[in-house]
């Protein structure tokens, strides 16, 4: 077998060099990485040709388990970073990946994750141009943690942000809620539940671009990761000092995800996603925005779920199927399975 990560791999000597060449250069085959320089120098002209704003983000990935139906820590790291850039109206271009590896982690596992990252990067049409690996003693980490940084380019006249919401705006979701959060909960195995639920982990760059093209005045976009759609809606409402009314009947949840949430006493609105776009557009653009998203596979189940209203103080209201109302709570912390 390929052996294990040892402290030597973290020493910066030949063992580190061999690991980087054998795993990362071999997998990513990117000129920038191959140069093994201490930084990647990127042609500014390429940026200037596409816009006047450099978008820059960072994210860390510590998912447990490392592999789950629909993805792994590697595809999650690439897509999560791509999505943070895409939802701010930027075209993602280059990524860096820093690995914190625990002593004793099988090298074959690292190779598998690197290959998954390469596939995800190619799919999202971005390049991994800088990387780093550090090793921590056994027990001081959980096999693999990944930190990323990402740069992209945006146009200043097209930068959606939650502070621009207006009463009458339409609230759109690009697909069903809760797939990732429930997939992870079940994949951990300690609840001993099985269902065919897969993470929605996917890049949203094409979807965001299609949306911005169909609707030049997108008010706000965000990928609904931890805290779920409920967290995003509450963040938007607070930032723009507006309220929202969401139609319960319009909220899309896949049947097995709804069943898992029912069994565990959880609310799909609070469950994490990794490929779900929440967008707010002027009311008159709603139909066109939906059509633009529905033309792409990652948006084919896009739907209108509610509207922005003026009511103050800002609150996110759920209109139940019965016509009554309740508040959609800003989730406190991680959703915990409950019996009561």
């Amino acid at each position: 077998d390929e052996g294990y990560i040892t402290l030597a791999h973290g020493s910066g000597g030949r063992a580190t060099h061999n690991l980087i060449t054998d795993i990362f250069l071999e997998t990513f085959r990117s000129d920038a990485l191959n140069a093994l320089d201490d930084s990647a120098r990127l042609d500014l002209a390429l940026f200037m040709a596409r816009g006047d704003r450099l978008a820059f983000t960072t994210d860390s990935f510590v998912v447990d388990p490392l592999f789950f139906p629909g993805g792994d820590i590697g595809s999650l790291a690439i897509n999560g970073t791509v999505n943070d850039l895409a939802v701010t109206g930027a075209q993602p271009l280059y990524l860096s990946c820093g690995f914190i590896l625990e002593e004793g982690t099988p090298i074959a596992l690292l190779r598998r994750i690197a290959q998954s990252m390469k596939l995800a990067a190619d799919t999202a049409r971005v390049k991994v141009v800088a990387g780093d690996t550090k090793v921590v003693p056994r027990g001081k980490g959980d096999q693999i943690y990944i930190n990323t940084a990402g740069v992209g380019v945006a146009r200043s006249n097209q930068v959606p942000g939650p502070r621009y919401l207006q009463p009458g705006d339409a609230i759109l979701l690009s697909g069903p809620m809760g797939d990732h959060g429930t997939a992870i909960l079940l994949a951990r195995g300690d609840l001993a539940l099985e269902a065919d639920i897969t993470s929605d982990c996917q890049p949203l760059h094409d979807l965001a671009a299609a949306l911005c093209e169909a609707c030049p005045t997108v008010r706000a976009m965000r990928d609904a990761t931890r805290g779920g759609v409920a967290a995003v809606l509450n963040e938007f409402a607070q930032t723009s000092r507006v309220s929202m009314v969401i139609e319960e009947a319009a909220l899309p949840v896949r049947p097995p995800v709804a069943a898992a949430c029912e069994v565990l006493g959880l609310d799909p609105l609070h469950m994490a996603n990794e490929g779900l776009l929440v967008a707010v557009v002027p009311g008159e653009f709603a139909a066109r925005a939906l059509m633009a998203m529905q033309m792409l596979p990652e948006g084919r189940e896009a739907c209108l779920v509610g509207h922005v209203t003026k009511a103050d103080p800002p609150v996110v209201i759920l209109q139940t199927r019965f016509g009554s109302e309740r508040i959609i709570e800003w989730p406190m912390g991680d959703p915990l399975p409950r019996i009561c």
């Binding site: 139940t320 019965f322 016509g323 009554s324 109302e325």
Partner: peptide, 9 residues
């Protein structure tokens, strides 16, 4: 009762 807003009905 609260999840479905039954009191208001």
């Amino acid at each position: 009762i609260f999840k479905h807003g039954l009191e208001a009905l």
